[in-house]
Design a protein around this nucleic acid. Structure first.
Lengths: 147, 147
DNA sequence: ATTAATTCCGAGTAAAACCGTAGGGATTAA
DNA sequence: TTAATCCCTACGGTTTTACTCGGAATTAAT
């Protein structure tokens, strides 16, 4: 029941990106974000692929290239980001969009299914209630008070 | 972000045990539950060890032995069961009782920590709001209407 | 006393997932 | 032309998962 490092690193990287480009709207390259966040740039590069595909960021290639946000940070929720990086947040496969079943023919009438549905809904409620803007603002104000 | 089969199988097995012994208070052996739930009895045996250690069930050895609930099903929550089988339900290690950190010295001031705390609380809220009794009753009434 | 049924305990194992590393091509600014 | 950067694919090591197995201990029934 753990989130992967993809999710943890990816979210932190996007908060960084949103905060650092709040005014400027310049591109930031992978290495800068990775070193600031203390994570591998090779790895972070991988994580940005799905985030770009999902439309949360755009990129510019070549020297002086980099990434920037492609939406307003108030229009991106933590849930959006986690689902892009992690796949859907269902705690069991039989609820997933893929339509996988538990295997048993009794899957539809399984008593525990209701539990997983409630849990799934609870998870989504939390992560969809927090926007990237909120986190970026927290990040900036924490940085300020640290001075 | 998936629960293990330990949790899924274990919960189903306990619902079965609670429902089938609702009146009788007799012991039921592993093989009976396993075959009724369509899971491996060797595996289920393993899952009952932590559940026994947590005090949710007791056992009697030898011929005619088996397991029975050790508490009222209304006093056991889904959360209790999942935590016994899965360990704590924190979505990230840095919140766990073990006190592990993300590694970085900035762990305490990490902006995303608030997200994980809210998510952790949301998960626990859901699973602690459902008791084994509720599920056992559902199980029995579903069985009835199937006739 | 013997047998059969059961829990109990520890080991082992195959497959999958996770976490990261690496190399080389394409693109662009300077 | 060069250096910086994104882009894409593949690979390797470690860890976790999901079982399987064998045998000892315990008990009821015969």
């Amino acid at each position: 029941m753990k989130l992967s490092t993809r999710s943890r690193y990816g979210l932190r990287a996007l908060v960084d990106l949103a905060a650092e480009t709040k005014e400027t709207d310049l591109s930031i390259n992978i290495k800068t974000i990775a070193s600031r966040q203390g994570i591998s740039d090779f790895y972070l590069e991988q994580l940005f692929t799905p985030l770009k595909k999902s439309g949360f960021i755009t990129s510019e290639r070549g020297a002086k290239g980099g990434y920037r946000l492609n939406k307003n940070p108030e229009d991106i929720t933590v849930g959006d980001i986690l689902r892009s990086l992690e796949g859907d947040l269902s705690p069991v496969d039989c609820l997933s969009d893929t339509g996988a079943t538990c295997g048993g023919s009794k899957c539809q009438s399984c008593v525990t299914k209701g539990v997983w549905e409630k849990l799934y809904a609870g998870i989504n409620d939390v992560v969809d209630s927090i926007t990237l803007k909120q986190l970026a603002d927290d990040y900036l104000s924490a940085k300020e008070t640290a001075l």
